[in-house]
Write a protein that binds this DNA or RNA. Sequence first.
DNA 1: CCTTGATATAAGCATATTCGAATATATTTC
DNA 2: GAAATATATTCGAATATGCTTATATCAAGG
Lengths: 94, 94
Amino acid sequence: MVIEKDWVVVLKALAHPTRLRIVAELLQGTKCVTSMQDLLPASQANISQHLGILRNARVVDFTQDGAQRCYYVCRPELVGGLLELLRDAPAPPA
Amino acid sequence: MVIEKDWVVVLKALAHPTRLRIVAELLQGTKCVTSMQDLLPASQANISQHLGILRNARVVDFTQDGAQRCYYVCRPELVGGLLELLRDAPAPPA
DNA sequence: CCTTGATATAAGCATATTCGAATATATTTC
DNA sequence: GAAATATATTCGAATATGCTTATATCAAGG
């Protein structure tokens, strides 16, 4: 199987607790940065940094709504599918 | 959705070109370390280190066969499913 | 036991990530 | 246009990753 470089970028983007949490929240529905600050134990700057990484990986995108940016998962089948797989994954053999 | 810490460990383990390549190869069938060296452009020590990371993440395990260790993916539904999702993922919106 | 083949671990260095603090930019409102 | 709100960027220090080289372990054969 050919390993696409983009896959690693996506996986790396998701491989962080805060970022995984962000995309899980965004799968529930579009959110602006301020509302994410209420949900996550991270500073505004930090959330913005993580969003930048997710944006670079093409995992999320946003629509501008006045001064606000409404973020959403731009490949929900992929990201949602990944989270579902993880959620349903049986515990590893001891 | 609850974010399990283990998920991040699995994603981090897979978020590396060599390691992703290793699991892709192992999904095709069990392999010992020596035969992986023929497939990958990496040193023995390096491959062994990556295998250690995959082991810690409970992504792979091995059976000992004499001096050889035969590695295999120990959660093939999960890992195979992830790779399939990535492979089938449409290109992100430009 | 000594050697050889297979694999793992340790040490060291270069590079990358992460996060906080401060600052910048853009938009709305008054 | 000044102040307030929303978000992004920059910088620096701490920490983590990745890779190389060298060394250790461990099993099998002689």
